[in-house]
Design a protein around this nucleic acid. Sequence first.
DNA 1: CAAGTGATTAGC
DNA 2: CTAATCACTTGC
Length: 200
Amino acid sequence: MGDRKLPRAFYTRTNVLTVARELLGRLLVVPAPDGARISGLIVETEAYRGPDDRASHAYGGRRTDRTRTMYAVGGTAYVYFVYGMHHQFNVVTNVEDVPHAVLVRALEPVEGIDVMRRRRRGRADEGLTSGPGKLCLALGIDRALDRADLLGERVWIEGGRGPIPRSAIAAGPRIGIDYADAWRDKPWRFWVRNSPFVSR
DNA sequence: CAAGTGATTAGC
DNA sequence: CTAATCACTTGC
């Protein structure tokens, strides 16, 4: 198992679709309040390709208080709040000033499952982290982590099980972006085929 | 299938 | 300033 944090160069590559696929099978980690680890293997991602992607918050090069984070260097966390109740955890990719990002949509719980069950009382284990808002609840991720460096100590990603073979990766249209006209149907959502932990 | 919830954004 | 919208989840 790759016990080390993914290096900066993993994130600064120029093809956000490649990074979105290669994030599958990696271990997302946050420290628990007591210092233990809470973690899960990434099983579902979506790529958002900055200025030319109508579905991206940074479409057209938009720079606002919220989207400023997307222009940070690859390997920065982009965390925002939607629908009045849910946080979303994204990984900024590419070099500084290119606003590409990958939304992490689902995890397979690995460490700290007891903590996750407490935070998501009543849910089956398959439902603890099977959605972008759910996994933020389970891991305790909120906007305090926006702009956090993924090579730091507040949230990071390790090699995990390593890259998932291309044959085991499924792709389809992204969720919740019906407003994005031509970009709506692009198959930029990736998941581990047969994983019971992906979102619905 | 629709409500809920509040930050964010565009537009005046 | 106001009003519409939203990279979702849950329970009806």
